[in-house]
Design a protein around this nucleic acid. Sequence first.
RNA 1: GGGCGCAUAGCUCAGCGGUAGAGCGCUGCUCUUACAAAGCAGAUGUCACAGGUUCGAAUCCUGUUGUGCCCACCA
Length: 874
Amino acid sequence: MTENTQQTPDSTPELPTQYAPAEVEGPLYERWVERGYFEADAKSEKPAYTIVIPPPNVTGSLHLGHAFEHTLIDALTRRKRMQGYETLWQPGMDHAGIATQNVVERELAKEGKSRHDLGREAFVERVWQWKAESGGQISGQMKRLGDGVAWSRERFTMDEGLSQAVQTIFKKLYDDELIYRAERIINWCPRCLTAISDIEVEYQDDDGELVSIRYGEGDASIVVATTRAETMLGDTAVAVHPEDERYQHLVGTEIELPLTGRRIPVVADEHVDPEFGTGAVKVTPAHDPNDFEIGRRHDLPSLTVLDEHGVITVHGPFLGLDRFEARSAIVGALRAEGRIVAEKRPYTHSVGHCSRCKTTLEPRQSMQWWVRTGPLAKAAADAVRDGKVKIHPQEMEKRYFDWVDNLHDWCISRQLWWGHRIPVWYGPDGEMVCVGPDEQPPSGEGWHQETDVLDTWFSSGLWPFSTLGWPERTESLEKFYPNSVLVTGYDILFFWVVRMMMFGLYAMDGTPPFHTIALHGMVRDQFGKKMSKSFGNAVNPLDWMDTYGSDAVRFTLARGANPGVDVPIGEDWVQGSRNFANKIWNATRFALMNGATVEGELPPAEKLSATDRWILSRLNSVVAEVDAYYDDYQFAKLSDALFHFAWDEVFDWYVELSKTTFQGGGEPAEVSARVLGEVLDVTLKLLHPVVPFVTETLWTALTGKESVVVADWPKDSGFRDAEAEREIENLQQVITEVRRFRSDQGLQPGQRVPARLDLSGTPLAAHEGAIRQLLRLQPAEEGFQATATLPVGGATVALDLSGTIDIEAERKRLTKALTAAEKDKAQCTAKLGNEAFLAKAAEVAVEKIRTRLATAEADIERLTAQLAALPGGN
RNA sequence: GGGCGCAUAGCUCAGCGGUAGAGCGCUGCUCUUACAAAGCAGAUGUCACAGGUUCGAAUCCUGUUGUGCCCACCA
């Protein structure tokens, strides 16, 4: 604390001069939860408003992106709660199959063990243990953030109810033949030892080497190129384009496959691009998706040469070699045989990596479970096309359709241990039985359950209704489904949103899971760079919350939230938000010290000063503006509007202008105290959804009421006073103009200057006290010399600055301004004289030019008068 | 290779047909009794480039350049 802050008036001992977020935030949250503000009652008569949390991964901790998303959801739900909705902000977490399993495997590795040392059951037990420890961390972070979630309803994708939902929908899909089992080429991670779906693949440009290999001998030889030479052991054909004349004579014949002693056919296939490379492709059906298709078309055998670890399985010199070792060994062997025609050359190409562990994926032929997405995806697309579900911002619809209209079947089986085990039993004679949640699995000799588990997105796709008790027709499901809006990042539009759309429509008889999808962007650093741990620019939101408070972090995030676009955030900006919180804090302190109150009716307009009417008029405009922005998910705009209204208009002008009134005491002071109370009451409520903590503290101090969390959301009373707005604008102009003059003349801000004011005939007469106070003007006394006369806004302010003013500087400035005004006037006059303009321009446009002309003319008059009034100006 | 988007003040971004805006940063003066985490005043932009449409374009159209993201089986 600095010295000057110790003069805190005794009247407000409970509010120190600086806002200290750390002391305030924690206890407030506890109180909110204890009072049950965030719980949702399915029996309530109120209309429902529901948002589900995009469930964070249990093993993780929340990063700034979560803080961002939660701020938006929390702001939406807090406002709706204040508007009288039965509001459900559904909390919970995702078991995140592969990610979690990897984390726990890494833990085990530290003990020198693998999951196989424990065995499946013990391993899964271990994951549950981990979940118990780690899950609490996220809840703690959510509380710090101020997330107003219904804690009693917290769910987990692996808990019993949700597991039952998973089994139910699996069975339904299976019975409807929308789930099937088939052998295909899938993306295989040789480290995670599981299949992963297409969208879990991250493509990166990797440097590889393209080698050209000669197959066959003499005339019967073809050169093929490959980046994955090791797969040649599994080649079962060479393909050329059917119309490629170079190879016509070989189609239908067999040529020798080097190193293997095998002969393979040359086939003609449309897939081959004759322009690329040599126009001939080696075909490895077991290890390449295209080749798999070619193999099917030509009935080629499929020869697996790599096992699940990516190790060569064919007998011979390469047996047991890892795929990368095998690659160079095979290239070496081929070279020794003179088979390498062109030396290998560097080649950058796109290679798939596991999104979880970054290992280079291996396309692998295997038996997997699939969801037939056709009809489901069509329904998901139609719901948006028909307008049943709106995507915000609307431009994102294109992306949605691009995806959903071209969806492949979805590989849902994972060779993992952590997840929902597929509810299918195999019998001794190849029977296959899908078991529903209320059914007994077949027992007896030789029956066993499928060992694969489901893709983690399978259960999160059910989230909007499984959390509400589905498949039971619970009261909560009736009340809170469909969700009002889904708030999530555009990055998981495909992973998650599409899945929820498909499953929601399917399970809930065509009712989509939510009315609106509001997509936000990604949090980035202050230079717009992606945040990542490896780049070193990742931020732990807790650090910033410790230093600046949760409100500051939230406000910064909200203020950057333009729909669908990324949000850069830097520590300086958080500091700025903290400053804003401090500003509100101190303005409220000032208000309380001056008796601001919300007691009693607001005095009628005729009892209010122009200043009071102006701020109330503005206040109601802002209420309307903020509501409109909320309804359009314009968080940046609404935050900015509130920031400027509060700081610029209420604190910098209204409070300053009211100081003389407060000092004067009596009824005018009481009226202003009531108006200021009203303005703060409403402003704090409007700010509360975004900055819940500081507003709660201040609002309860101001009103003496229980909590702003359950206060009524402000309504636009419809009060507007254009005349008062003009009057105060005029007043601001006068004050700014004189302040500018003072500043230009090098007067110190606090220096008192004798002045004579002539405000007669203007509405400004009523503001003389305020003008004198704000401008530090003393009454003119004996011997007053008007050395500077400023005619502004119809009034005249004469100052005694004997001998101290720089007349030339002022003359220069005024002349410059006058020239500008005259130029503007000329422009406007020209425009208004332009017939084409008058004929074609819209009425508003013409009106604007007229206003502009009037302003220019007024400026010219004022500036001319000021110039003339300068000493020695004649 | 396709698709989408973006290029506006030093930085990050609003504006999207009628005089260029915000936050942070910057310059000057101030501890003026709510707040120095503040106040007041101020500076800063051929709105990427080139054409076009229009009475008028940062804003609409076309092209160029640069840049980002998503999708894709080119060996």
